[in-house]
Amino acid sequence: MGMVNTLVITGYGTNSHLETAHAARLAGADRADVVHFSDIVAAKVRLADYHFLVFPGGFLDGDDLGAAQAAVMRWRYLKDAQGVPLLQSLRDFLDQGKLILGICNGFQLLVKLGVLPALGGVRFERQVSLGHNDSARYEDRWVHLLPNAKSPCVFTKDMPLLSMPVRHGEGKLVPRDEECLRRLVSENLIALQYADPETKQPTQEYPLNPNGAALAIAGLTDPTGRVLGLMPHPEAFHHVTNHPAWTRGELDPPGTLLFVNAVRYLRGQQ
């Protein structure tokens, strides 16, 4: 059985990197390294040495220019110390069949960089974005998530209704146009939706849907199913005591199940 090495990117405002690495270790990853973005630029660390890349949550660059926008510019235009464009390293990582997870600010980065949803297999072209919540305020609350059983996403395969916290001010998914939204549905690239726990159906009702996202979209995958971006924080629910209702015996499945599926998939590929 081969190694599963996880790389968690930190720096410039990221603040959920340690919990994210911990979640990967709990899921069975052999290594979960937290690496500053500048070490990738300096070529001290190579994406090629890892199998699972995670962009965790935080407030990259203070959300100046829009959430994750400045970070997108770094990934799009910088080269590492060996002269290799970072975008090429990311493209190679994807082409090698590896996994990428973007959580909250990481999801914002993936959609604005065009890694998600990659409709038609077109990468690095922005097709959707994430805008300000309809409530016009920062939302910090627990939500329920309905996985799409028809989605190719390896992270959400066979998942039940999930419960996780959100903490964001720009989480409303906005498609480029109606055709884009239609294709997200028809191609099953909607991996997770905000749901009503009573009906177990997607909802636009606030605060069950904390931001007003189109079609209650909380997470997207790409056509390969090997990339997932979501606004809620699975790494923040890695133990039963993280859940606000655990003392009442309300034991929802932990968010780390997404990481478990990722590690299981990678081991199967090896």
Rank of each mutant, 00 (worst) to 15 (best):
L86P: 09
I9V: 15
H22K: 06
G97Q: 08
E19S: 15
W142R: 04
Q193E: 03
A32M: 06
D39C: 00
T156C: 12
A118S: 15
Q88N: 13
K44D: 07
R31M: 05
A216C: 10
C153A: 06
V72S: 09
A32C: 10
R167I: 02
G212L: 12
V128H: 13
H238F: 05
V263Y: 14
A136D: 15
E170C: 01
I100F: 04
P202W: 07
K98E: 11
L181R: 11
L208M: 15
F155P: 12
R46A: 05
L161F: 14
L47W: 05
D196P: 04
D158F: 03
G268I: 00
G13W: 00
L53A: 12
D134W: 08
A262T: 07
R91G: 01
Y194C: 11
T10L: 00
F93C: 09
K98R: 15
E235S: 06
A21V: 05
G225N: 09
F52R: 03
A218P: 01
Q127T: 05
R126W: 06
A71N: 01
L192R: 10
C180N: 02
I217H: 08
Q201I: 01
P152Y: 10
L116A: 12
L145H: 13
S38Q: 11
E235K: 01
T199A: 14
L189Q: 11
Y138N: 13
E19A: 15
A245E: 14
F37Q: 03
L266I: 08
K112R: 15
G121F: 14
Q69W: 05
A24E: 02
D39A: 01
Y138S: 01
L86A: 03
F93P: 06
T224W: 07
H233E: 07
L230I: 13
D158A: 15
T156H: 10
A21D: 05
Q201D: 03
M159V: 03
S163W: 04
E205M: 10
T224M: 06
D177P: 11
T20K: 05
Y194K: 09
Q270W: 07
V260Q: 14
F107C: 10
A27F: 07
T199W: 07
H243T: 02
G225A: 08
P244T: 05
L65E: 09
P207Q: 04
Q69D: 08
S163K: 13
M1W: 12
L251N: 09
S89Q: 15
I103D: 02
L230V: 12
V45K: 04
L145N: 11
L47V: 09
E170D: 07
T20C: 14
N211S: 08
G219F: 07
G83H: 02
V34T: 06
H144P: 02
I9G: 00
V115P: 09
G83Q: 02
F93R: 12
G131M: 05
E187G: 08
G106A: 02
G171L: 10
A48W: 01
T199P: 07
